[in-house]
Computed example of a mutant assay.
Amino acid sequence: MIRILIVDDHALVRSGLSALLGSKPHLNVVGEAAEGNEAIRKAAELSPDVVLMDLSMPLGKDGLSTTSELKKAQPNVQVLILTMHDDEEYLFRAIHAGASGYLLKSAPHDELVSAIETVYGGNAYLNPNATKRLMSEYLDRLKRGENIDTYESLSDREKEVLALIAKGYSNKEISEHLMISVKTVETHKGNLMEKLNVRTRPELVKYAAKKGLLHFD
Rank of each mutant, 00 (worst) to 15 (best):
187 T>W: 12
37 N>M: 09
188 H>G: 03
132 K>C: 05
197 N>L: 14
202 P>F: 06
126 L>F: 14
101 G>S: 07
101 G>D: 03
116 I>K: 10
201 R>K: 13
90 Y>E: 02
81 I>M: 15
190 G>V: 00
54 D>A: 04
75 P>Q: 05
139 L>T: 10
65 S>T: 15
142 L>W: 07
183 K>H: 12
46 L>A: 10
189 K>L: 08
13 V>L: 07
21 L>Q: 10
204 L>F: 00
9 D>H: 12
213 L>W: 07
187 T>D: 13
62 D>L: 03
60 G>A: 08
30 V>H: 00
154 L>G: 04
40 I>Q: 02
197 N>A: 15
177 H>G: 01
113 V>N: 11
139 L>G: 07
175 S>C: 04
141 R>M: 13
213 L>N: 04
121 G>K: 12
149 D>T: 11
130 A>R: 01
19 A>T: 11
204 L>N: 01
149 D>A: 11
31 G>D: 04
214 L>K: 12
91 L>C: 06
183 K>W: 08
52 L>R: 05
37 N>W: 05
112 L>K: 08
78 Q>R: 15
81 I>S: 07
2 I>R: 02
14 R>P: 06
163 A>H: 01
77 V>H: 03
162 L>E: 09
175 S>Q: 01
166 A>Y: 02
149 D>Y: 06
174 I>L: 08
34 A>Q: 13
1 M>Y: 03
116 I>L: 02
192 L>K: 01
165 I>E: 00
202 P>G: 07
92 F>S: 02
83 T>Y: 13
93 R>Q: 13
119 V>D: 00
62 D>A: 04
189 K>Q: 11
82 L>C: 12
101 G>W: 09
25 P>K: 08
127 N>W: 05
128 P>A: 06
19 A>R: 14
212 G>K: 09
209 A>K: 15
120 Y>G: 01
82 L>R: 04
194 E>P: 00
210 K>G: 15
86 D>W: 12
48 P>R: 04
101 G>N: 06
177 H>P: 01
199 R>Y: 11
213 L>A: 08
201 R>H: 06
88 E>R: 15
58 P>L: 14
196 L>I: 11
140 D>H: 12
147 N>F: 15
11 A>I: 14
212 G>N: 07
38 E>D: 12
206 K>M: 15
179 M>T: 08
7 V>N: 05
150 T>L: 15
204 L>W: 01
144 R>F: 02
6 I>C: 09
59 L>F: 09
55 L>W: 05
110 D>H: 12
138 Y>N: 03
172 K>F: 10
36 G>R: 00
6 I>F: 11
111 E>N: 00
64 L>D: 00
127 N>C: 02
115 A>L: 06
